[in-house]
Design a protein around this nucleic acid. Structure first.
Lengths: 136, 136
DNA sequence: CTTGACCCTAGACTTAACTCCAGGGATAGG
DNA sequence: CCTATCCCTGGAGTTAAGTCTAGGGTCAAG
């Protein structure tokens, strides 16, 4: 039903420090404290941490997750469009990175394929030449 | 024929600080200094800086570019295979990132497409629900 | 009552690749 | 000579998301 920080962390596969860090970032507040000052977490906190981790795995930053949580907490009064907008911004973001990585991949593949990769000296290595070319 | 740091930087579209930073990282040494201590760069330095920037645009880190430069400087005695190996490691690296980003893209697209995005309250928003789901 | 496992805080450190700052010197044009 | 523009150094700051450290308290078992 309720647990300490160590159990919460290990249930989610993160470090204790990470949980405390999320708290400092106002992403996750413990349900209470013991007399001795230990944080206690409920099942709700477990769900919340998992929410955060899922959003992270989709590429959201902690700052963006904060926004998502703000919307989530106040769901009744927030339009779906606000949530979808965040998701779409992030999607565009991911798409840009994909494009850029694709560009790198194509260019690097091209010059790598052209290289013999043999044991002969790299005096005329086509990779080094491509990086050193006069044009562009 | 030869220039100061400002001209070199602007010819390559980087900041002066960046050039000095590359020098600190032992990527780019000026050809000399004026009496007054100003760095002077030759056409060779210009090529070298462009080499660095091209490698960077292919996804190499500065540390990896250092290795490339080490090989390049000693081309005669380095096998092509060493160069190609660096390129292939980087390619694999890029491919992993592409895979991961593709995974994110698919997942986020799926849950985003399912969201109405309308002005109605997000009480049952499918994006929030997907992030909050019990399973997985 | 002692041991070991757990927890607390505040704050420093990490990585990459810059970017900025203070305080000052060099150089060219008028 | 004055001014504007360039340049110098050493070192600090930036960003994201943690990770680590020192020094200490809590709690349950034996």
């Amino acid at each position: 039903m309720s647990m300490q920080i160590g159990e919460l962390a290990s249930k989610c596969g993160v470090r204790i420090d990470t949980v405390r860090y999320y708290e400092k970032q106002k992403l996750l507040v413990p349900s209470g404290r013991t007399e001795g000052g230990y944080r206690i977490y409920s099942k709700v906190a477990l769900r919340e941490l998992r929410f955060i981790l899922r959003a992270k795995s989709l590429g959201f930053t902690l700052k963006e997750i904060q926004e998502l949580l703000t919307l989530k907490i106040d769901r009744e009064n927030q339009p779906c469009s606000s949530v979808k907008e965040l998701a779409e911004v992030k999607l565009k973001d991911i798409e840009e990175k994909l494009t850029e990585l694709g560009r790198m991949h194509n260019a690097l593949t091209a010059i790598t394929d052209a290289c013999c990769g043999g044991e002969e000296p790299a005096t005329a290595c086509s990779i080094l030449d491509a990086l050193d070319k006069e044009d562009s």
